[in-house]
C-alpha cells in the first residue's frame, strides 16, 4: 500500500497485536471460510482503512490494525463466515478496488490468527 499522510496512533503495531484475541472462531465448524485482503503498492492506506470501517463497520482502531497487517505481512484475514458470505464480501471489496480472495479456513491459515472476528457489519456505526 501507499503511505498516507495522516496515521493515527492506532496504526502502529504495538505489543497488543495478535495477543489479546481468542482463536476459537477460527476452528469453529460453522465458520469455514475466510476473506483475505492482499497488499498492493497502489491502494492508499487511508482508503483501505476507510473501506474496512465503512463496509464492515469496524472501529477505526480495528480497521487500522487490519490495514497495517495487510501492509506489513502482505495479507490479512479481515472477515470469516460461510462461503456465500465471504464471496459476497469479496465482490464488494473488488468493487472498492481492493485485492480480495476467499479461502477455506481449515489448513493453511498462514499463522494469521486473531482476526477472525466474524466480520459482519457489527461495528459501532449502524
Amino acid at each position: 500500500m501507499t503511505l498516507s499522510v495522516a496515521l493515527g496512533p492506532d496504526t502502529q503495531e504495538g505489543t497488543r497485536t495478535g495477543t489479546a484475541e481468542s482463536t476459537d472462531s477460527l476452528t469453529a465448524p460453522d465458520i469455514p471460510w475466510n476473506l483475505v485482503i492482499w497488499n498492493d503498492p497502489v491502494n492508499l492506506m487511508s482508503y483501505v482503512s476507510y473501506v474496512f470501517q465503512s463496509y464492515f463497520g469496524y472501529s477505526e482502531s480495528k480497521a487500522n490494525k487490519l490495514m497495517m497487517e495487510v501492509h506489513k505481512k502482505g495479507r490479512s484475514i479481515v472477515a470469516s463466515g460461510s462461503k456465500e458470505q465471504v464471496e459476497r464480501h469479496a465482490v464488494a471489496m473488488h468493487g472498492f478496488g481492493l485485492w480480495a480472495t476467499v479461502e477455506k479456513a481449515s489448513g493453511g491459515n498462514n499463522g494469521n490468527s486473531g482476526n477472525s472476528g466474524g466480520g459482519q457489519g457489527k461495528g459501532k456505526r449502524g
Binding site: 498516507s4 499522510v5 459501532k124 456505526r125
Partner: peptide, 20 residues
C-alpha cells in the same frame, strides 16, 4: 490522482468521525 484521492479519503474519514 493519488493526491486527489488521499485528500478525498481524509475528508471522508473526518465526516465519518463527526457522525459517530
Amino acid at each position: 490522482a493519488t493526491w486527489l484521492q488521499e485528500s478525498l479519503v481524509q475528508a471522508m474519514l473526518q465526516s465519518m468521525d463527526s457522525r459517530r
